[in-house]
Amino acid sequence: MKVMDRVRHSMMGRSFFRAPDRVTTRDVAAGHWANFFLHIYPVKMRRKEISFRYSWYLGAISTVLFGSLVASGVYLMFFYVPSPANAYGDIINLETQVAFGQYIRNVHRWSAHLMVLAVSFHMARVFYRGAYKSPREFNWVIGVVLLLLTLLLSFTGYLLPWDQLAYWAVTVGTGMATYVPFIGDRVSEILLGGPAVGASTLIRFYVLHVALLPAVLVVVLAVHLWRWRKDSMLDMERSEP
């Protein structure tokens, strides 16, 4: 520990940590405040709110699973070409030739299923806690948007292996779009890029899955966490009638 303190007090350490003293509670708070990676967290929270039974840490777990999905997904992207001629063969190649290919694909699949579950349970937990109540209403709305984004990410990823399971699940799912009143056929065509699931659908779902939806989710998640941090010490119990 002493060695680490000397590092923190060196010229480089000071430039790196900004708040090198960790002696008093105030120093620790200043260090937290000055840290980029910790800035998504509040500095202090109520004792009861950091316990497992309060939140079951489902928000944190959802975020961890998203991280796992980004990491494994980027690995898969190196070996995958989103065209009907290549996609299926690339998955076979990934499972048989690529180092850890099958394992990383499994990680991606199970993380995705678990993230849908974790986000859903998170919503239920927040409901039963009453944590959506004033003044946190809007963060609940942002959470509903995040649930929708999670489902869309999972659904767009479902098509990419281009096997029978993927093809027909997406055919069933997108088939519902044709029933939108008045503009159903237009919606379906925009979604699929044609009259049926095909090459244009695959590239559309791929771009949505690896670029657009994750980017939107990161931004919305940032707003969600920012509001959570800002509201972390609000006095809700005391205002209870």
Binding site: Q102, N106, H108, W110, S154, D163, L165, A169
Partner: peptide, 28 residues
């Protein structure tokens, strides 16, 4: 996640075939 990924492989059926509808067709 590690245990699930070690124990259960992600499914992969035959290549997509628009002319062969499986019965039942299941959504995710």
């Amino acid at each position: 996640v590690l245990l699930l990924a070690l124990l259960f492989d992600a499914p992969l059926r035959e290549i997509a075939n628009p002319n062969l509808t499986p019965n039942p067709e299941k959504a995710p």
